[in-house]
Design a protein around this nucleic acid. Structure first.
Length: 864
DNA sequence: GCAGCCTTGTTTTTT
DNA sequence: ACAAGGCTGC
């Protein structure tokens, strides 16, 4: 709410018209109104940075609803889940105030999640299994390596990342393997064409798609299937697409296919903020929108409500250096504001310390809460030195992806188990977890198993169950495989209760029965599918194995009907549940967090906790797994009807920014790319050096002029995130890949007018103490934050109170009582500095004496 | 089959 | 500087 009040207060003009007081239009500018009230027909909104684009979009959705259009007929597509969530919430809040006839809600999501949803809904139409998995980049690379190997190509000559890049590019252009092969010229491309084919085969075998497939398959579905296209055109009668400058060809086709009939398509974007050409974004989608939709109305939003005049002037000056650009003039009625600080340091450590010093000054003397400050950089690698400086100073901070949470090994391991439960054909996940934790199953045994599975045409988990049939396996390996199969089986019964399990025909004494026992299926006998917390999956696996195993069916999608001597039976079909089929609508599945805990427990993931000395690493692993459970618990709370498959889809499509905590009370560190769409009162952009901010890949002989222009846009995006105070920083030397390198200031720094800038040269630090130049507070006083409208101040004040560093070292002394989330309460026995960190020895009441790192252990002080 | 050492590459940016 | 993967010696 503070945000809206702020806009209202900053708005030079409020419109005192008949509409005044109208919650939708009351406080909009003329241009914004024009965009909001344009109902039918194509609309292009060219929205400059900070011009109130999001509010325009949300108001427009509310306006459409107020015109009698059912919200469920509105589709809004954004770039990140976070943006989608914000837009959805703001729109729903507006809709709530309208007392509409239609109680429905609009669809607000990202392109990728929209596509995932549509592909699941229409999976049968394109021969895709409904339970398809979604690969992340690491998985894609593994598949590429396998495909290279099958083609006899070495990863040395064909860098997997580059091959993947080619394939990804092709998919973004809707070019499938055959078309790519036909168009390929030259040795590299013809080789990639072969890899592309095999890669596709591997994807299909694993019943998986990659990120690009989500778009490609949806685009082709809409293009080639008129019936489904018509249905969806009817469903999504009004379409809004945000960040249109960053859409690629596949997204363009999806948008056009959905809109071609009714042409009620509104796209918003800013060519100056196009920063994703490297991954296939096509700027001409937005530049030539009027060509595709000649009836299009065009609205320009050029007034900026975010930044000071100084910041805007500097950013505008920078961006006018782009030659391939339509002229657009941003202006603001905001104050001139403080000068931009341009800091030049000796090395990256000094740079980081200086940034931290300034932020602390502004916090302590200016009363700016930590979460109003952000530091941006071009490449993730830069974050480390900043992190160290912040830690040393004891300031609270959050990094938007240091190493991505869901990419951590232990997290991926747990998720791989879950994936395997949903999709037994998921070869990658199988290979990942078959020996995690270690079960003595090495490469030789696993490849024998894989051969057997391939020969018999069965999934790997099924092959595990029949391990005794596999020749040349050691007794130990057979036993290990069978135990793994039993583990997966019992977990699956817990995770995905077979639909109508009570109606299962009693299974004939099986050829592949693992565990002897009565075929007693009692848990669903009552007819309810509710999850029973008292249900013991281990016990169930043992007592019902012979029946339940058939439902584990790895083979649900197999073409060949089960023959008389088949090891499976017809009930195998029930292996994949669909939440949508649940007639009651109540949760049929146990909570994801419960499944996850069971996986962790039964697979003995936390085995290491038994070892006495907890090193930093395993502690971190544990806390990551705990965090994974916490996130899953939150998912359960928000999606009480979500299936495991739904959860995995959601997890596959989260981005880093999505995990950005709003009320974190911490300084935020992120890449310039991640910063798009955000705003902060104080922003620092570091490492503004040739080769980093115009990144060297945009320079050099491979780089082209348009690449440098994209780098400039990236810089522009970063600068225009700043509301009040901007710091631009560079350093004379920097450690790059272990070597200290001399650096040159970025050309972008020279493109910013001197009158916007105060230069601070820390190289003069070498001079005798007290000499002018360095830390001259008269030249550069850390000014208190400019007084703001009331609504803003309140929230700032609140944040300050809550923003004390959570982990300030001073809070932990020898003898203080602390709580650890795993070990419970204990007393600090020792504190020793180790390099940048602090080793702390804690005497826990129940867990004994442990040595931990204060910075990682997440200790909480205990009063008394 | 596995643990530990040594080599190697890695640094754009992301759904 | 660091992480991950490969190699060697149990």
């Amino acid at each position: 709410m503070g945000r809206d009040q702020r806009y209202a207060a900053w708005m030079g003009v409020t419109f005192m018209t008949a509409d005044n007081g109208d919650v939708i239009l009351g406080d909009l500018t003329l241009a914004q109104r024009e965009a909001v009230t344009h109902v039918d027909g194509p609309l292009l909104v060219l929205a400059g940075a900070g011009s109130g684009k999001t509010r325009t979009i949300t108001r427009r959705m509310a306006y459409l609803a107020a015109q009698g259009i059912a919200p469920m007929n509105i589709l809004a597509v954004t770039f990140t889940n976070k943006a989608a969530a914000e837009m959805r919430n703001r729109t729903l809040a507006l809709l709530a105030g309208l007392s509409l006839r239609h109680g429905s809600v609009p669809t607000v999501c990202t392109f990728h999640s929209l596509c995932a949803r549509l592909l699941r809904e229409f999976s049968s139409a394109i021969g895709l299994p409904a339970a398809f998995g979604i690969l992340d980049t690491a998985d894609q690379l593994k598949l590429i390596r396998q495909a290279l190997e099958k083609n006899g190509l070495s990863p040395e000559n064909f860098a997997p990342a580059r091959v993947l890049d080619k394939i990804s590019g092709a998919k973004n252009r809707l070019q499938q393997a055959d078309a790519f092969a036909a168009a390929a010229t030259g040795y590299f491309d013809t080789s990639v064409a072969k890899v592309y084919r095999v890669y596709e085969e591997l994807l299909a075998a694993g019943k998986a798609v990659d990120f690009d497939d989500l778009l490609l398959k949806t685009a082709l579905l809409l293009r080639d299937n008129a019936e489904i296209r018509n249905r969806l055109q009817g469903r999504f009668r009004y379409i809004l697409i945000d960040e249109y400058q960053d859409t690629n060809h596949a997204q363009f086709v999806i948008a056009h296919m959905l809109a071609m009939e009714h042409e009620n398509i509104c796209v918003t974007g800013d060519p100056d903020q196009s920063i994703y050409a490297w991954r296939g974004a096509n700027l001409s989608n937005i530049l030539e929108f009027e060509k595709f939709f000649p009836r299009a109305r065009v609205v320009l939003l050029e007034q900026n409500y975010r930044s000071t005049k100084t910041i805007l002037q500097a950013a505008s000056a920078l961006i006018t250096h782009n030659r391939l650009r339509k002229r657009k003039d941003l202006w603001t009625e905001n104050a001139v504001g403080a000068k931009i600080l341009r800091i030049c340091s000796a090395d990256e450590k000094q740079e980081a310390r200086e940034i931290v010093r300034r932020l602390r000054d502004w916090h302590e003397r200016g009363g700016i809460s930590w979460d109003k400050m952000a530091v941006f950089y071009r490449v993730n690698a830069i974050s480390r030195v900043l992190e160290e400086a912040l830690m040393e100073a004891g300031l609270p901070y959050q990094i938007v992806r240091g190493t991505e949470f869901y990419a951590r090994k232990e997290v991926k391991d747990v998720l791989a188990y879950l994936k395997l439960l949903v999709n037994p054909d998921d070869t990658l996940s199988f290979q990942r977890v078959i020996n995690v934790p270690a079960r003595g199953l090495g490469e030789t045994s696993v490849s024998r198993l894989a051969d057997f599975a391939a020969h018999a045409g069965i999934s790997l988990p099924t092959a595990c169950r029949r391990a005794e049939e596999i020749p040349d396996l050691t007794k130990r390996a057979v036993e290990a495989f069978r135990r793994f199969a039993a583990l997966i089986d019992s977990l699956r019964i817990l995770a995905i209760p077979p639909a109508g399990a009570s109606h299962l025909p009693a299974r004939q004494a099986g050829t592949d029965t693992l565990l002897p026992g009565s075929p007693e299926v009692s848990r669903d006998a009552s007819g309810t599918n509710e999850f029973d917390p008292l249900y013991d999956p281990v016990l169930a696996a043992e007592t019902t194995a012979s029946t339940e195993l058939s439902t584990f069916s790895a083979d649900a999608d197999e073409n060949s009907p089960p023959g008389p001597d088949s090891h499976r039976d017809a009930t195998g079909e029930s292996g994949y549940p669909h939440a949508a089929e649940d007639p009651v609508g109540s949760r049929r599945f146990p909570p994801i967090a419960t499944i996850m805990k069971e996986v962790i427990h039964r697979a003995e993931f936390i085995h290491e906790s038994k070892t006495r000395t907890m090193d930093e690493e395993s502690l971190q692993r544990q806390s990551n797994i705990q965090e994974l459970i916490n996130v899953a618990t939150e998912y359960d709370r928000q999606n009480p009807a979500g299936s495991l498959a739904d959860y995995l889809t959601q997890v596959a499509l989260v981005s880093d920014v999505d995990r950005l905590g709003e009320k974190s009370g911490a300084v935020t560190l992120m890449t310039l790319h991640a910063a798009k769409g955000l705003e902060f009162p104080v922003v620092a952009i570091v490492a503004m050096e040739e080769g980093i901010l115009p990144h060297e890949r945009a320079l050099g002989f491979q780089g082209r002029a348009q690449d440098v222009e994209e780098e400039r846009r990236l810089c522009f995006v970063g600068m225009t995130r700043a509301m009040q105070q901007l710091i631009l920083s560079c350093s004379c030397y920097r450690m790059i890949m272990g070597r200290s390198e001399g650096r040159l200031a970025s050309r972008f720094l020279k493109e910013i007018p001197d009158e916007c800038v105060v230069k601070i040269d820390l190289l003069t630090q070498e001079r005798p103490a007290g000499s002018p130049g360095y830390r001259d507070e008269n030249v550069d006083p850390p000014r208190p934050f400019r007084a703001k409208p009331a609504g803003y101040r309140d929230s700032a004040g609140k944040s300050i109170a809550a923003a004390e560093p959570a982990s300030a070292p001073a809070r932990f002394r020898k003898g203080s009582l602390v709580r650890h989330q795993k070990f419970g309460v204990g007393r600090i026995a020792e504190l020793t500095p180790v390099g940048e960190k602090t080793r702390v020895v804690v005497e826990f009441q129940s867990a004994g004496r442990r040595s931990l790192f204060l910075e990682h252990a997440r200790l909480e002080p205990v009063d008394g």
